[in-house]
């Protein structure tokens, strides 16, 4: 009889579980700046987790994730600070708006493939950037300063940390649930071979749209947390570059792997931090590392790690079975 969890996923659970425990401990011990960095990392991870489903499973190359983060961030700012409503309302409004926008963009976009879809979604993020820049109620080019929220300051700034951690863990669980169930398998077939998917009775548009909306919802959540963290939203923060960065995070981490977005986000947040000492060169070093990772390992950082682990494991299996089977 097979156990419920596939063996490959067991190592992943171990890593995720230990990491979560460490992050909980870190929340109580680390200083403000380190906690701030971790929250930024979690925000990118949450958004990347969402994006990983369309990109990694359905081969839906969405380059508009920054646009959904903008939706979450601006909705949060307007609801809490223009309308002075509680954050819970803002959170729900962000999610609802993300679903609505996801459907509006996704329905036409899911008819397209690969490159066309990438450009259309990219243009979507670009358009939102210009929209918030040109309207008064979104603060125009200056953006919006937010009222201080309970979540921002509570427990000397730890509330937002644990909230981000909670959302990231829930996002990971949701991704796992989809990846290892009927929907995830259907999405994989859709990504690999649409004709086969059709003849297996899979409604292609439904699953593609679902994956796209999953990404838009997690993107909006990430954007909302980001707005709370910084107490300020500005168009430049959510410019088209953010969409490119999110896409890159998924690819650098290792697309289609659940822990990939966490590694990709760590790369994107961590490398500039490490290379900060190099002053203006930090960006250059980051770009070179980016190119190196995607060129050398199409499977991203996780691809490199899995290759190493696989080599070690094969080595030990070979040693163990060498006596039993002659080649």
């Amino acid at each position: 009889m097979l156990s419920r969890v596939p063996p490959a996923a067991r190592g992943g659970w171990l890593v995720a579980g230990v990491a979560t425990l460490l992050l909980i401990l870190a929340g109580f011990t680390l200083g403000n700046y380190e906690r701030y960095l971790i929250v930024i990392w979690l925000i990118y991870s949450i958004s990347g987790l969402g994006l990983n489903l369309p990109i990694g499973f359905g081969q839906i190359y969405s380059l508009g994730q920054g646009g959904f983060m903008l939706v979450g961030a601006y909705t949060t700012a307007i609801v809490t600070s223009t309308w002075h409503l509680p954050y819970a309302v803002a959170l729900i409004a962000s999610l609802v708006l993300a679903v609505v926008v996801g459907i509006l963009v996704g329905l036409p976009a899911m008819r397209l493939r690969l490159f066309s879809l990438a450009i259309v979604t990219f243009a979507f993020g670009f358009m939102l950037f210009h929209v918030v820049k040109s309207f008064q109620f979104t603060g125009g080019p200056q953006g919006l300063f937010m009222d201080p929220l309970w979540l921002t300051d509570a427990f000397s700034g730890r509330a937002i940390y644990f909230f981000a951690l909670l959302v990231a863990v829930l996002g990971l669980l949701a991704s796992y649930s989809i990846a290892h169930s009927k929907s995830g398998r259907a999405l994989l077939v859709v990504g690999q071979n649409e004709t086969a998917a059709r003849s297996l009775g899979i409604n292609i548009t439904y699953y593609k749209l679902a994956a796209f909306i999953f990404a838009s919802v997690l993107g909006a959540l990430a954007g909302s947390i980001h707005a709370v963290l910084t107490s300020y939203v500005a168009p430049e923060t959510y410019a088209a570059e953010l969409s490119v960065t999110m896409f890159a995070a998924v690819m650098i981490g290792g697309k289609g792997k659940l822990l990939g977005p966490f590694l990709g986000a760590a790369f994107i947040v961590g490398i500039p931090e490490v290379t900060q000492a190099a002053r203006g060169l930090a960006e250059v070093i980051y770009a070179i590392l980016f190119i190196l990772v995607v060129t050398v390992s199409p499977g991203g950082i996780l691809g490199i790690l899995e290759g190493l682990i696989g080599r070690l494991r094969r080595g030990s299996i070979k040693a163990a079975t060498a006596g039993e089977r002659a080649p």
């Binding site: 398998r185 004709t195 899979i202």
Partner: peptide
């Protein structure tokens, strides 16, 4: 039209969609 990265079992499960 198989999913290359998935296991044989997962591929067969798709047949039960």
């Amino acid at each position: 039209g198989l999913i290359e990265e998935s296991s044989v079992l997962d591929n067969v499960l798709v047949g039960l969609h």
